[in-house]
Design a protein around this nucleic acid. Structure first.
Lengths: 196, 196
DNA sequence: CTAATATAATTAACACTGTTAATAAAATCA
DNA sequence: TGATTTTATTAACAGTGTTAATTATATTAG
């Protein structure tokens, strides 16, 4: 009875790995059931023995990508102690990850989800991700009485909305046109929000 | 020679009208070439005699929707003189329009555009729309020396990013869950940005 | 170790999608 | 009216997600 579970989980892993590869490489618009299955080395119908539908599969990747992004942020902010400065660094590293893998941004924020109810936990994971990345820093600022809890909540909202907006316009509408300009805009917005 | 142009423009109008109806009614995911053509009373292939592809057609609707939204904003802000107060009212009316017609929000901000180059003018029209709606108010505040030109530019950016972000999370991820909560969030953000 | 059964993987099929080529209908003009 | 040009339609292709029927592979019982 245990072997079965191991094998089943392994099969799921093959499809998930294939999906992640396509998402990071070719991007979200190259994702298709047949495409994924081919890369995983199975027929397209086999996929339905392990996942209810294609959306369920691609949302399985969210957690992994968040872990990877988290690692990337950790590297970019190593040896910097919690506080305003690190907060900015985290945001910039977070943004950098999605600019590098625009397909993952599309999966996180642009993909229209059918049967949203079943994906609500994942959607929540996505929305609160940036907050979790900055958790220590917010707590630090609150404990040092630089800001209040209430202010922290407002700033979290502002940061999340602004950063998502920036990425949306840059990735989906090529505005600004250059990465340099984009980074300038990002810096400006971070300064506006975070120079308390 | 003139008749031909008139007839051609009329045909285009039929398809555009059908597209607008579907977008406002069923939404963006119900848009399809066959669907549009059927509502327009023609075969799906006929559409290609008047539009290069389906994307070209649906982007033709942007201008009309902006006009309609502009009218709606005008009504909601009638008899209010330019300034901080009206700025907020415009933003709230703008948001209200997209909440009512979520398909139009998806068209404006979420639709991934193939051949972005040819749609760059439309994309620009979309991005600058909220700025144009608030134009008189920004000019008023600048001329009254409440804010500088530089500040106005920053605030425009902040407003555009935040509002788009709010709508993105509400429409695409159902956060917040209720319209009341959403409006509370909107009010908070507008207050944070605009109480100069 | 073979035979029956249960499980897993595959192919075929359906209903869609956008788009193009070939065909049918309609309008224009000599 | 008859030939030509323009316009609209159907047929077809290559895709999409998904399900049912079929084949192949394990597993278990005798």
């Amino acid at each position: 009875m245990k072997n079965k579970e191991i094998q089943e989980e392994r099969m799921r892993g093959y499809f998930i790995e294939a999906t992640k590869e396509i998402l990071k490489g070719e991007g979200l618009r190259c994702i298709s059931v047949r495409n994924i299955a081919e890369r995983a080395g199975y027929s397209y119908a086999t996929l339905y023995n392990y996942f209810g539908d294609s959306k369920e599969l691609i949302y399985e990747c969210v957690k992994d990508f968040q872990d990877e992004c988290g690692e990337s942020v950790k590297i970019d902010t190593a040896n910097v102690s919690p506080g305003k400065k690190r907060l900015k660094l985290i945001c910039k590293s977070y943004v950098k990850y999605f600019v590098q893998y625009t397909g993952i941004f599309e999966l996180f924020f642009l993909e229209k989800i059918s049967d949203l109810a079943s994906k609500q936990p994942t959607v929540e994971l996505i929305r609160t991700f940036i907050d979790r990345l900055c958790e220590d820093d917010w707590n630090h600022l609150i404990s040092k009485k630089v800001i209040t809890k209430r202010q922290a909540e407002q700033l979290k909202d502002q940061l999340r909305l602004t950063i998502t907006g920036l990425l949306l316009f840059y990735i989906n509408q090529r505005y600004p046109q250059s990465y340099e300009e984009f980074n300038k805009h990002l810096d400006e917005q971070l300064k506006l929000i975070l120079n308390f």
